[in-house]
Design a protein around this nucleic acid. Structure first.
Lengths: 198, 198
DNA sequence: GATTTAAGAGACGGAACCGTTTCTTAAGGA
DNA sequence: TCCTTAAGAAACGGTTCCGTCTCTTAAATC
């Protein structure tokens, strides 16, 4: 901080650093993330980063823990379709936030971030897949959708389409798109007996 | 080339350079791809690269053109399920090749590669989406699946699940997984009238 | 064989970044 | 108020990479 500026300490500084990580991830992507860049963006010294984290990787893992773990909540309305539309709508809201965009970018970089894979998959990917699976399972338990509807691919189909559309196709999604994904892909999948077990 | 080594010229050299791009993409990802690295891997001088391509980005776009554009072929057996299983199986074969792995990594980096987005989406993503849509459309034409089955999300559901499973979840797929994707997600989607248009 | 072209090696000046250190001094607590 | 702690600025030696240039000489062509 230059003369007259306030120094931040402890939690306050860490929050600012996590914010900076997210902003730098958004701009540079994981492959080009640097301590230099994060420090500059957080307006702090590199030494302050190195006092806490020994590497950029460690810093990102901490940011994942602190800022990227909380999955979207799925309601329990008694209707699987309604619950999924609302939950995926919230996933879209997350995707449209800075942290959500950073998450998407980070997920795309996972093949090249071995040190990050475990943390990201456990903290970002799995809880979100579990929330979808739980929602569908409630429908199974209510007799609303077919027994056995919860499979890894069925549970992943919604999130896969959302991330694929945003990350790979480069398209922005609308609330209507969310409904289309649910109505065209996910609901048929949970209701129709699959070919070989049907 | 050191004394005694053979110099390559023209096409031969370009092929070696494209190979090197793919290998470097596999190892470093797009974010950390360097002219220095490609040149070293191709065992050529940077000047030879710069004689042809003014930037790493231009080199990658050329590699996409030359090595990554050919989509998988889908058969026309008279059964949508069969065609999709074979076609997605070929997509999986591609994914298990060096170029295919490089493609996946490149797709994950697209948010951070503005200069590459257009080329990658037009040459890698769209032809493959079109091949799936064409396959499903043939089923529509044969009266095998429902009219209106070809929607962007239905057509994307297979590729989205394949790339999501590999790239985001970090899991290797098997031929059995391909069949599960088709049977659990894609076939129900093409056969069941969607909620709001049903 | 002679000539032309471009491939490959190596060097260059400069930029960016790493991880570390020193120094000053703003916070926080006693 | 005094003392302690750590934040921030700046510098450091070293590495990697960039884009370019020079020189030698391997290919290709006539």
């Amino acid at each position: 901080m230059t003369v007259g500026q306030q120094r931040r300490r402890g939690r306050l500084l860490e929050d600012a650093i996590h914010d900076a990580v997210i902003d730098e991830l958004l701009q540079a992507g994981y492959g080009r993330l640097t301590m230099e860049g994060v420090a500059a963006r957080a307006r702090t010294a590199k030494a302050s980063l190195y006092r806490r984290w020994s590497s950029i990787e460690e810093l990102v893992i901490d940011t994942v823990d602190r800022r990227m773990t909380q999955p979207e909540e799925y309601p329990d309305t008694g209707s699987v379709r309604e619950d999924l539309v609302v939950g995926f709508g919230r996933m879209l809201d997350t995707l449209n936030s800075p942290a959500g965009r950073a998450i998407a970018g980070l997920l795309g970089a996972l093949p090249y971030a071995p040190g990050l894979q475990k943390a990201a998959r456990e903290r970002i990917v799995r809880p979100r897949a579990q929330a979808v699976a739980d929602t569908i399972q409630r429908g199974v338990d209510r007799g609303e959708v077919r027994p056995g509807a919860v499979t890894p691919f069925v549970a992943a189909s919604g999130p896969a389409l959302i991330i694929y559309t945003y990350l790979i196709q480069g398209l922005e999604l609308s609330g209507r798109d969310i409904e289309d994904i649910v109505d065209q892909v996910v609901m048929p999948a949970v209701q129709v007996s699959s070919f070989r077990s049907g």
